[in-house]
């Protein structure tokens, strides 16, 4: 039988995809298995391990316990369902906050780094990478000093709000350098001529930016949004340091309970439920934004 004729590109792609797929799959097996065990355990009467598959039963008990605040025996007395819901809400606030601040600033700064000529531009672009290399922890003392200093003039009833804003901005600041770099790469791929063309067609600078340029860098924006959302969602140290002790996020809540060796007294499947919940939004958010990431070809422009 004659083989079906295929485009050269298709053949390559298929083989590439297959090979890539296998490699990625093998590499991800440990992670996938771990996550699967985590999620499955949250719906089981005990932690899933290899030996006891036969004795497992399905239950929602863990989730109920978690939402009742009963992550550990001791915590039940301290936390109520309302607290848990508030922590979830807080987590969203911080995650979206970091995402919005990071994405907005990185997009604008990335455009500037890609398009505008200014003194020290090259140096600044190199500096971005260096800045990214600074671990957030090493900056925390300075950031804390600034926090205390800047909090002074603010009336104390606003301090909680200010703490949230401060956490969001500080955490975003850690993400921004790398994301500027990423966005710059996307802007670099948009030819000048497309912008000029729109200007000649009579569009204002703002309109060009909004209607022509942003749609073309959508994949970049999506990527940056995901990264920064995840960063905000998982933020631990900054949240711990700046938010008042009564305000927690899922990250600090779980970490707090697990700290100090209390692992022995917790019911592990409940922790699995907490972990699953902690993962879930990231997964949902990712699948939501994913379709933008691989979109948009820059065709229609030669060369």
């Amino acid at each position: 039988m004659m083989p079906e004729t295929t485009d050269v590109e298709t053949i390559n792609r298929r083989r590439m995809n297959l090979a890539l797929g296998i490699v990625v799959l093998i590499a991800s097996i440990p992670i996938l298995v771990t996550y699967f065990i985590l999620m499955a355990s949250s719906f089981a009467n005990q932690m899933i391990t290899g030996s006891m598959v036969g004795q497992l039963t399905f239950t929602l008990k863990n989730w109920i316990l978690f939402f009742e605040g009963k992550l550990t025996v001791a915590s039940a007395a301290v936390y109520s369902t309302w607290d848990i819901l508030r922590y979830i809400f807080n987590t969203f606030i911080v995650a979206f906050g970091v995402m919005l601040v990071t994405t907005a600033l990185a997009t604008m700064a990335g455009y500037a780094c890609s398009r505008m000529k200014f003194k020290g531009r090259k140096f600044l672009i190199q500096l971005l990478i260096l800045l990214h290399a600074f671990p957030g922890v090493s900056l925390i003392i300075a950031v804390y000093a600034l926090y205390i200093f800047s909090k002074g003039p603010i009336p104390s009833q606003w301090w909680t709000l200010y703490a949230f804003i401060y956490v969001i901005v500080a955490r975003a600041a850690l993400e921004i350098p790398m994301d500027i770099w990423i966005m710059k790469g996307f802007f670099d791929k948009v030819p000048w001529e497309v912008e000029w063309s729109a200007l000649i067609d009579g569009a204002s600078r703002i309109k060009v930016w909004k209607d022509i340029i942003l749609p073309l860098v959508k994949p970049g924006i999506a990527a940056v949004a995901i990264f920064s959302f995840i960063a905000g969602w998982g933020a631990l140290i900054y949240v711990l340091v700046f938010l008042p002790p009564t305000e927690k996020t899922l990250a600090t809540y779980i970490a707090g309970l697990l700290a100090g060796g209390s692992l022995e007294v917790v019911h592990l499947p409940v922790v699995a439920a907490a972990g699953t919940l902690y993962l879930l939004p990231t997964l949902i958010f990712f699948s939501f934004v994913r379709r933008y990431m691989l979109q948009t070809s820059l065709s229609g422009i030669k060369g």
């Binding site: 001529e193 497309v194 063309s197 000649i200 009579g202 569009a203 022509i212 229609g300 030669k302």
Partner: peptide, 20 residues
């Protein structure tokens, strides 16, 4: 004057269509 104020039509060497 800006390009818009000059009311010119320009066909670019690389077309510069709006890809989206």
């Amino acid at each position: 004057l800006t390009p818009a104020e000059r009311n010119v039509g320009l066909v670019f060497q690389n077309y510069a269509l709006y890809p989206h």
